[in-house]
Amino acid sequence: MTGSRKKSADRENQRTSRRNFLKAAGGSAVAATVAAVAVPSLATDDESGQQADKKQYGMVIDVRKCIGCHSCSVACKAEFDVPLGATRSWVEYTDKGTYPNVSRNFLPRLCNHCRHAPCVDVCPTGATYKRKQDGIVVVDAGLCIGCKYCIQACPYDARFLNPLTGVVDKCDFCIHRVSKGLEPSCVNSCVGGARIFGDISDPESEISRVMATNPVTVLRPGMGTEPNVYYIGADHSDEHENKRGWYDVRVTTHRKEKDRR
């Protein structure tokens, strides 16, 4: 904490010294000296104060513990009455290789609650936004017009148009449970204990400890979305690799969309 405060104070000093130079060039060096003294203390207080309340909920999925039972998908369906043919949370199977050198890996999927969420950037009505208090990306079902722009923009195909409501729907980390101190339904129902949910910004939380002590990956890191769902031991193989002809990859999405986006 003190380290980060010191760093931001340094940055502030740099900024003010640049301002200093400009103002001195303008001929009012005295005012600038006052500003250089006054501004840094105010700014750092403000920043650290904000940082203290800022949560970022996230999830680590330890794929080594996943048995591909779809409990999470079923629990999610039941929790939200998700209509037939749509999924907020689903499990993909990746089958690789040719007998006898084969493997099957599971990849549980959900909304990544990205730090830079492309869906939020494109939403024309402000219906989708990232909550300041906990970093959950939500859809305001009362504002959404169902234009499907966010569905196009999501690199994870996490969103769908709910045919019953006509608005866009997706995983919201079980906001109704989480806000009452419960775990999300998929975490609660995971028989292998593969899912860990918590506040990533708190270094003492279980999720932060697991992330710090294990190799973790995110999906499509090249998109720059900075997801908040992390995987341990995930197989990132995709059917695109088949064109190399080395080994067969077959992905079963268990969704209406047979292809991974």
Partner: peptide
């Protein structure tokens, strides 16, 4: 649209979404 009769929600605000500016 999924909710055609809410189309006017587009004009409740101005943001940088190309669809909002386009509307």
């Amino acid at each position: 649209l999924g909710q055609p009769f809410r189309a006017l929600n587009l004009f409740k605000l101005i943001n940088l979404s190309p669809m909002n500016i386009g509307s």
